[in-house]
Design a protein around this nucleic acid. Structure first.
Lengths: 237, 237
DNA sequence: AAAGCCAATTGACAGAGATCAAATCTGAGT
DNA sequence: ACTCAGATTTGATCTCTGTCAATTGGCTTT
């Protein structure tokens, strides 16, 4: 999928009524700073499947996800893909040291981001250690998640991987939209497979197995978690 | 392995003649700051196999590795282990947001660290955004490495894993001690297996296979890289 | 030098998950 | 409603890596 039409809205938005105002990097800014901040960012929309940035690209922007889901992934020369994470509203992307993104990102369904040009954003941070501290916090949180995922990839069985993924994904949905046992899965089976280090067939078979055992019900566009306790048991093992 | 005797040297050391002065977090400090900084840290030695900190411990200190090698790992309830990285001189440990370490660390061979109590270190950072920026840089670098390792764990074959590990480890030795085709491997085969998401038997067989094919020679306490080009080819694939 | 211990290697076999292939389902467009 | 393309599921088989077991090797202790 290559990027097609990208709509840049002519500054018709304000941080003060931004849905993720409290969750994102912005949470470290006071009202006055926020007003200055909102001139730096632009809302940009991406359609389903569009690439927001690629691994080899020079980093020219930072991104704050406002709406939708993105897959973050790395490719091997022969085409094998590892999804290193899914980005949801509130996630901050673009941190790096090499000057290049070290993974690619594309939209799963429609996505809105708040895009910041690198240079002015860097200048804005300069004399706001609060913001820097917030960014550091996010980086460290991601690092911790990355290590958890290494354990999953290196040491867990297919059943454990799938159960852990479903619970973890549900957890993020809960944080965003409140508690529900209906878990929407906007990403494809292939995406899930590439996230868990499995093949699409194994993911599909495992879903079916979980359904046969009454742990989940496979519904349109997601799953329904029938037996959270049993799922937890599978994931913990 | 549980911690045994830990020697705390009575302040007989100075940052100015520290071997890793330029590489570590300290590189962001000027001479005056460094003089203040050296009162915060203490050199602490650990013997081979001793645990420096455990996953569930509250974080009370930050650590700067001065000498030696540490394995950083997470355990599953049933004892399966995933090594999430090896720490070498210059590496900075202890960053977290939960207030707890999110992995355990123990010494592989003798280790010396520069240990900082959390509170005074935090206060020292407070009005030194330079240092914070440096720490952020280190976190982001680690994050990038973590993502690379996810690709290895999720999508590479045993041969590729081992070849990639040997080249990566050699790279770090080169950065530390200069170029050499003799690569010391202070960690056990089990450590390598737990780092690569393999079993000890598979690691051993792969080493033997690489030796049969003339890519490496297994020597005492490490390997000799006979055919770097072939190893690169295996790792890239 | 012999004994003992732990790490590493090697062998035989098994199994989880991959691969190859076909069938079924779903949704968009006509 | 019908067609077509892509996604998902299911089946049959294979293979890479894990498991279990035995052997070898190196180092320390006596």
């Amino acid at each position: 999928m290559k990027p097609s039409v990208v709509t840049i809205e002519p500054n018709g938005h304000f941080c003060s009524d931004c849905a993720i105002r409290g969750a994102a990097v912005c949470s470290s800014l006071d009202a006055a700073e926020l007003r200055e901040f909102e001139h730096l960012g632009r809302r940009v929309h991406f359609d389903s499947g569009e690439t927001v940035f690629s691994e080899e690209d020079m980093t020219t922007s930072f991104y704050n996800v406002l709406e939708g889901v993105m897959r973050l992934y790395k490719l091997l020369p022969d085409g094998r893909r590892q999804i290193v994470g899914f980005a949801l509203p509130g996630d901050f992307l673009g941190m790096n040291i090499s000057g290049r993104h070290n993974f690619s990102a594309d939209a799963i369904g429609a996505v809105t981001v708040c895009q910041f040009a690198k240079a002015p954003f860097g200048r804005f941070i300069e004399d706001r250690p609060q913001l820097l501290r917030r960014i550091n916090e996010l980086a460290i949180r991601e690092l911790s998640q990355a290590r958890d995922h290494m354990v999953l990839l290196g040491r867990r069985s297919a059943d454990e991987k799938v159960a852990t993924f479903l619970l973890g994904w549900r957890e993020r949905q809960v944080a965003l939209k409140g508690l529900s046992d209906t878990v929407p899965l906007p990403m494809s089976r292939q995406d899930i497979a590439d996230y868990l280090g499995l093949t699409i067939e194994t993911v599909s078979r495992t879903f079916t197995k979980l359904e046969r055992h009454g742990v989940i019900e496979i519904i349109h566009g997601g799953i329904s978690l029938l037996d959270p306790a049993r799922a937890e048991a599978l994931a913990a093992a």
